[in-house]
């Protein structure tokens, strides 16, 4: 089995799985109907992307695990998502800020991966990129609208940015898995990705009249399976049916 490729796919898939689940929590609770529908639509895209990614991960692993087995039947330490995506929804401003910081990373990532030497990753990236462009446009426009909106909305998204900033560096976490895949042309430079992300984020936050926090301290752990307490609660809900009724289908 190609261990590095499997590990990479699980990282890629868990980010969209957990963020998709987080967004789905807004179903029926959106501030306005249109946003309720928007967030659940984006959740659906993210979970759909996860399906393709984890399905491929299961094939690479070669032990007969399906995308559902991987999504529903692993333990907390086996999840490889970043800490950013498991952070609670908070208010609408927090959710949009979290989404924007993620979309600004995921869009250029897929732009890189369409050129992957791995044909299946390239196909998934080409498909997902079309959707991610819509997500980015939606979240970036909201960050600008809220940041450059009323005093109240400005303060709330600035606070959201201050709280979430410490989880952003982890998206660019690099270890031997990344170095191995990059050497095979399956993935590309994380440094280029980070530069693109920083430029995009700065340009949008400037328009939003928001200030990038200067505190340099950053969390990590998610890529190694060490999560914040939030993931346990997410998994309790996400896995409930399969744990209570193993193998159930509908």
């Amino acid at each position: 089995m190609d261990n590095a490729l499997f590990e990479y796919l699980v990282r890629l898939g868990d980010d969209s799985l957990i963020l998709g689940h987080r967004l789905s929590e807004w179903c029926g609770h959106g501030p306005i109907l249109e946003e309720d529908i928007a967030m659940t639509n984006i959740a659906l895209d993210l979970v759909g992307q996860t399906t393709s990614i984890l399905k491929y991960a299961g094939e690479v692993e070669g032990k007969g695990r399906t995308e559902d087995d991987l999504a529903f039947l692993r333990y907390e330490r086996e999840y490889r998502n970043t800490l950013l995506v498991e952070q609670p929804n908070g208010d609408f401003g927090v959710t949009m800020m979290r989404q924007f910081l993620f979309d600004a990373f995921r869009k250029p990532l897929f732009e890189q991966l369409v050129n992957s030497s791995d044909a299946q990753i390239a196909a998934i990236a080409a498909k997902s990129l079309k959707e991610t462009k819509y997500h980015f446009k939606h979240s970036a426009e909201w960050v600008i609208r809220l940041g450059d909106g009323t005093e109240e909305s400005h303060e709330r998204v600035q606070n959201a940015l201050n709280d979430l900033w410490r989880y952003t560096d982890e998206m660019f976490f690099t270890d031997e898995v990344d170095r191995d895949l990059e050497s095979r042309g399956i993935t590309f430079s994380m440094e280029d990705l980070k530069n693109t992300w920083q430029e995009t984020v700065k340009s949008v936050l400037d328009q939003a009249t928001l200030e990038i926090p200067t505190n340099g301290w950053q969390h990590d752990g998610g890529r190694k399976g060490l999560h914040s307490e939030h993931l346990g609660y997410i998994l309790a809900e996400l896995q409930y049916m399969q744990r209570a009724y193993p193998g159930m289908e509908w």
């Binding site: 928007a38 639509n41 659906l44 759909g48 959707e131 819509y134």
Partner: peptide, 13 residues
């Protein structure tokens, strides 16, 4: 446009 996201993934409102 009321919303970029509509009743299904492929539609806007």
């Amino acid at each position: 446009m009321i919303s970029q996201f509509g009743s299904t993934a492929c539609k806007a409102h």
